[in-house]
Design a protein around this nucleic acid. Structure first.
Length: 171
DNA sequence: CCCTGATTCGC
DNA sequence: GCGAATCAGG
């Protein structure tokens, strides 16, 4: 299951990446079928290797030029040795993230880094959106986190109906 | 061992 | 162009 990089997926990728989301986070956010490697690869291909707001100070690691496990054949690979790009000393301050009061107003493109990513509606429908409220736990708001991160789905009684009731409000 | 991004290279 | 494998590091 690997759809090509459609406009929307690329757009979402750019947005999430520029927001400082990690590659694996983005990979999960994009649904399935993409690994973090795919995301990273695409990011580099898109030309946005350096990010404005690195969540973790990933040092510009100088890897050894890579020993080539190639049995034979030495393809001339005049790789450029550039790891530190001339940063214009412009520590951008991104994330003027809007925070709607009502859920379901965030699309995959407007969804901010710390906005609840609980899906609202049918993903294959036009009006599909995300909750968009302040994410409290993980990528969800408090309310949705309770549903998403169910610690135990076992209660002697009827845990399923509780879940169903919670879900019903948003479907 | 978990995670992060970076790079290379076969496809 | 794509992404798995592999790397260096936190």
């Amino acid at each position: 299951m690997s759809l090509g990089w459609t406009e929307e997926r690329v757009g979402a990728l750019k947005k999430l990446w520029l927001e400082g989301q990690s590659a694996s986070q983005i990979a999960k956010a994009l649904g399935g079928g993409v690994t973090r490697n795919a995301v990273i690869g695409k990011v580099h291909r898109l030309g946005l290797s350096g990010r404005a707001a690195p969540s973790q100070p990933v040092r510009a690691t100088f890897r050894t030029p890579r020993p080539r496990p190639q049995p034979s054949a030495q393809p001339s690979a005049p790789r450029r040795i550039e790891a530190a790009q001339p940063r214009p000393a412009a520590p951008v301050q991104p994330s003027p993230v809007p925070m709607p009061d009502l859920p379901g107003t965030a699309t995959v493109l407007t969804l901010g880094a710390h906005m609840c990513k609980w899906p609202i509606g049918d993903p294959s429908s036009d009006g599909f959106s995300f909750c968009g409220r302040r994410a409290a736990e993980g990528v969800y708001c408090v309310e949705h986190a309770r549903v998403a991160y169910q610690p135990q789905a076992k209660k002697g009684k009827d845990g399923a109906s509780e879940l169903a009731r919670s879900l019903r409000r948003y479907i």
